[in-house]
Nucleic acid binder design. Structure first.
Lengths: 126, 126
DNA sequence: AAGAGCGCTATACTTTGTCAAGTGGCTACC
DNA sequence: GGTAGCCACTTGACAAAGTATAGCGCTCTT
């Protein structure tokens, strides 16, 4: 009891432990998804509109096709985007954000604002 | 010219190409920083307050010390956090977000909101 | 006719992250 | 007093993730 009185954070920590105990924490789950390499780049690019596979790879700054495919399939599974096959020969597909993907605009906007304010002298890689 | 008339997005794309031509795009630079494994987890954890090295490793869900150190050093270089040495023996350090790191609250909040709305059935890893 | 582009796949290779052991002391507990 | 746990890392071997590149068969463009 004495330590609770000394440390006002304990009460908040206890709350956090409650949600961890249930095995689910929204922000951590979301970070887990979004931290995968290329994911945020893909979302940012697709917020500009639907794109073909190679077009998208170039738009994100050059992602190798194996990883790009892997990433896109995962994001499609999660419901963030949809893949449309326009023709098999010639092969034509396009990728477009679903509603959950479009809603990441709030995240990209926050990142953009933060980047403008705090990363003004670091050029983009690649 | 006809393609510009058909595709209203071309004007926006041209603007984006301008900033890319100068070699700097804030959102892409920021994404490049934030997409590194553990980074967003680290920021989220430190938004709760300063932490020791091992405490932080546990708080992010279990990051191995080699990568954690590497990541923290990089974030310190970028000015996102500060490392304080309290004593060498026993070894005691703490990590605390700097102003630029605290300002990532807006990003974490956006991610949290998004996660609550769209990832309601996926448990956090680890 | 030749070249570029499409959407990938496959394979060898490189890079990144993990696992586990370890250092030398300090502190708490039995 | 002895033991165990903790601290902040470092190290080296290994696993996982990502990359580079060649290639397929067709369609368009020059």
């Amino acid at each position: 009891m004495a330590t609770i009185a000394e440390d006002g954070l304990s009460r908040i920590t206890a709350t956090d432990e409650d949600s961890q105990a249930s095995g689910y924490c929204p922000v951590r789950a979301a970070i887990q998804v979004l931290q995968e390499k290329w994911t945020l780049h893909i979302v940012r690019a697709l917020l500009e509109g639907p794109m073909g596979f190679n077009e998208l790879g170039r738009a994100v700054g050059g992602c190798n096709p194996a990883t790009l495919k892997l990433r896109l399939d995962h994001l499609e599974e999660l419901g963030l985007l949809v893949r449309t096959v326009h023709s098999y020969m010639p092969p034509r597909t396009s990728y477009q954000l679903a509603r959950a993907g479009v809603d990441l605009q709030r995240v990209i906007t926050a990142i953009d604002g933060w980047g403008r304010e705090h990363l003004s002298s670091i050029p983009a890689s690649g």
